[in-house]
Design a protein around this nucleic acid. Sequence first.
DNA 1: TGGTGTGAACAACTTCACAGCG
DNA 2: CGCTGTGAAGTTGTTCACACCA
Lengths: 215, 215
Amino acid sequence: MRQPMKFSKIPTATITRLSIYSRYLEALAQEGVKIIASDKLAQKCGINPAQIRKDLAYFGEFGIRGVGYFVKELLFEIKRILGLNKSWKMALIGIGNLGSALLAHQNFIRQGYEFAAVFDVDPAKVGRRLPSGQLIHHLDELEQAIKDKDVEIGVIATPASQAQAVAQRLIQAGIKAILNFAPTQLQVPEGMAVENVDFTVKLDNLAYHLTMGNT
Amino acid sequence: MRQPMKFSKIPTATITRLSIYSRYLEALAQEGVKIIASDKLAQKCGINPAQIRKDLAYFGEFGIRGVGYFVKELLFEIKRILGLNKSWKMALIGIGNLGSALLAHQNFIRQGYEFAAVFDVDPAKVGRRLPSGQLIHHLDELEQAIKDKDVEIGVIATPASQAQAVAQRLIQAGIKAILNFAPTQLQVPEGMAVENVDFTVKLDNLAYHLTMGNT
DNA sequence: TGGTGTGAACAACTTCACAGCG
DNA sequence: CGCTGTGAAGTTGTTCACACCA
């Protein structure tokens, strides 16, 4: 009963918010702010202050009552929780417009993420070297390259029609996490982590709101 | 206090799912499938069948008991609900790598959405014409162009540092919906619809899952 | 018969309110 | 005193189970 609940269930929304907190804490640290209270941070994030405290409480007690949180310390803790105290190697599959944009944004992607290998099937692309330095491999080399380079996250930027097949191969190669930009619900085995980045769905949400004309 | 909120509250998750249903219904229609049951569709979408029926029940009775749903009819109804029976005009602000990718994907964006005007502040870009045909306007012309072209959705693809300022101008110009690709929580007045497409947050979610090593 | 539509049970998440501590 | 940490209340979303009907 008194068990330190080894893995109490953490809402995924909490993880998403931690990521957002870390973003603002980084900005605050940069500005030289030393201490911040949940109310203040909440305001910046557009979130209820109690929510922030509860989110943090899942992982420990990081604040000082009557004072607030030390910015740098809290940032460090959140990064540790999220697993950002190591660097993550990603494989990018599909070097179309979107894939290229992701590569170009690489500096924009926060430290800790790196495209260790990139793939396409287009003969016009395979073998060429990208401005960012990577050699474009053929998809056939996927499994080998993933093992050689210890890739942990697969990023799918292919057309929807090929996304499932690519996912299958990533899974086969031992990948446990996929960031999917293709507009498809990937079918994956239990335990795989898949996150979809799907702006057509977001657009549809906006269209609905505009049509209904309410909040 | 006792206000009878005329429009019963529809979960936003429901709208998101409707968008996904429509995607699969479109595929089914293309394949020539005439009728589909909630169980079948649920399987494809990775969703509970009861959830689908409940989602649809918010808007009416579209099925036939003991049979299922007529694919084409249901698709039509969902599109009507989402507001996809008209075309939507968007303004794109920021023609960097991401913005260019969005423009190039224009054909990929499902019918009904169109970039009616595009903007940047880079003198090297302003005045040039894109492969997709649009002339790149300077940001200064934002308000005018939005009015002239009846733009209804603003798409922000600028650096994070400028996103809030751009949002302000969009709001000022009368825009009611924003698709935000910048990694910032935009501060907007009540009633505005904002959807964020934020893959750094998604990556952090994956990192967390990998670190924890559980579902 | 078989699958929809739906009230009721359930589960998950958010907010409140305040005790407790620096 | 002020702000954190947290049980409890409140709210929202999901799943069940079955009546109902083509």
